[in-house]
């Protein structure tokens, strides 16, 4: 079972007008695997991630989540499939007009049709897990960036997703707040969540990733274990990128 792909990207292509952002990308993420995607800005890594729940509409290709193709089916099917794909954004995107608790219960109530009691209990449980239960009644504007991001993670987790996508989750944070978010992600990993992370936190990648994927120019240039990619990168482009970010 360990090798069953939870997320499968097949021949994914994305064009914006004359520009091809993604060129036939293939990627398999096994159950409980943490795949780290690195690459220079403009490499297409965020676009690839956003195609995985169709926030960005792929030009062609398939996205399979737990064996089901999210490119097939109706709009309703897509809404249902998105429940299985959690997403965490660089800008958090909490709902500013709702309390932290309501942020975490909204989709549970409206999309999963859970009862209020059930949604509240589940939300408090998730907020506990990310260390934010004490702020359940606060509004997002009263929280630090790191706290907002942890609430955003709880909002996704409360829907019991099969895969979590992280789009530069710590890039908008003050340096001293990064650690609290990375700790939550590490906890998630230890609980067996399947995760795809686009990020520049190389030290974190080295420590927690099962596999590192290096993208550049809309293609996967190289992939391997953190030791292989960071210790002995094969491709020239990987070496150049890594020396830039570490130097």
């Amino acid at each position: 079972m360990a090798n069953r792909p939870m997320l499968e990207v097949v021949a994914l292509e994305k064009r914006f007008g004359p520009n091809t952002i993604l060129k036939k990308i293939d990627l398999k993420v096994a159950e409980s695997e943490l795949v780290f995607v690195i690459g220079p800005s403009g490499s297409g890594k965020s676009t690839m991630l956003r195609c995985c729940n169709r926030l960005e509409e792929p030009t062609s290709g398939d996205i399979l989540v737990n064996g089901r193709n999210i490119m097939a089916g109706t709009r309703r099917d897509l809404d249902r499939m998105r429940l299985q794909i959690g997403m965490v954004f660089q800008g958090f995107h909490l709902y500013p007009h709702m309390s932290v608790l309501k942020n975490v219960t909204l989709a549970q109530r409206k999309a999963l049709k859970r009862s209020k009691a059930e949604a509240d209990a589940r939300a408090m449980n998730m907020l506990e897990q990310v260390g934010m239960a004490h702020k359940a009644d606060a509004y997002p504007g009263e929280l630090s960036g790191g706290q907002q991001q942890r609430v955003a993670i709880a909002r996704s987790l409360a829907l019991d997703p099969k895969v979590m996508l992280f789009d530069e989750p710590t890039s908008a944070l003050d340096p001293e707040l990064v650690g609290s978010v990375l700790k939550v992600m590490k906890d998630l990993k230890s609980k067996g969540m399947t995760m795809v992370v686009v990020s520049h936190e190389m030290a974190f990648a080295r420590e927690t990733a099962d596999r590192v994927v290096f993208m550049d120019g809309g293609v996967v240039v190289e992939e391997g274990t953190p030791d292989e990619i960071f210790g002995a990168p094969k491709a020239e482009r990987t070496r150049a990128f890594l020396s830039r970010v570490s130097g």
Binding site: L55, M87, H93, Y95, A107, K110, A111, R155
Partner: peptide
Amino acid sequence: VAKGQWEAAQSTGLTPAQTLIHVVLPQ
């Protein structure tokens, strides 16, 4: 209303109508 609000809501499985009613319109 920031585009991120639409994206966040829809990524949690809310339909476009639910996103409009509960997230975007109040703001």
